[in-house]
């Protein structure tokens, strides 16, 4: 007899186990730079452009998260790469121009996030998602703190911190992308790029 909650959404699915034996390694799909670097970068650009549409839905503006920050968090955890910082720099330059920020503003802040995470990746990769979420929020705080500091140095005035908090919340809502990409790429055969 089936358990009363063992149907529909409550059906317990068999747990996925990662096969680390030889057969599993051979069966894993090879993932190249196009798939784990360039495609997410293009998606990030597309999402940024779409969310910049000047409309209001039920009186509310569209959110404006910093989409490349998710990639700056995920890519160093997947593996260190020569191409990733260059693609990230291009994404930062795109944000600088598209959002009309000072040249180098997003490039510098994203690069610092990437560099720090490359250094500490061995402590973060493989942790429980709650730990990863905490580190993600800490990364966001560092990122936006650097942004506030750089703008204060550049213009001599402090930006409204409530606005910074709103953008931080919008970027936090993108966190489900992080475990999705980590599950997809961390244990895959990600090729050198």
């Amino acid at each position: 007899m089936k358990a009363p909650l063992d149907r529909g959404l409550f059906r317990q699915r068999p747990k996925k186990t990662i096969t680390r034996n030889l057969r599993g390694a051979i069966a894993s799909r090879v993932i190249g730079p196009w798939e784990w670097l360039f495609m997410p970068a293009l998606v990030a650009i597309a999402v940024t452009v779409v969310l910049a549409t000047p409309i209001r839905i039920f009186g509310l503006h569209l959110p404006e998260p910093v989409m490349p920050l998710v990639l700056a968090f995920v890519w160093p955890l997947v593996r260190p790469s020569y191409l990733a910082p260059l693609v990230l720099a291009a994404l930062g330059l795109f944000l600088d121009v598209y959002w009309s920020a000072p040249f180098g503003f997003y490039t510098l802040t994203l690069m610092i996030v990437y560099g720090v995470l490359v250094t500490v990746r061995s402590y973060v990769a493989g942790q429980d998602w709650r730990v990863v979420f905490g580190i993600y929020v800490a990364t966001e705080i560092v990122f936006f703190g650097m942004g506030v500091t750089l703008i204060a140095l550049d213009t001599g005035s402090i930006v409204r911190l409530i606005g910074v908090f709103e953008q931080l919340i919008a970027t936090t809502l993108l966190f489900p992308v992080v475990p999705y990409m980590l599950d997809k790429y961390v244990h895959a055969d990600v090729r050198f790029g």
Binding site: A52, E64, W99, S100, A101, F105
Partner: peptide, 10 residues
Amino acid sequence: SVSVTRGPFN
């Protein structure tokens, strides 16, 4: 208006 940037920095 084609696009808008509403972030705190710009």
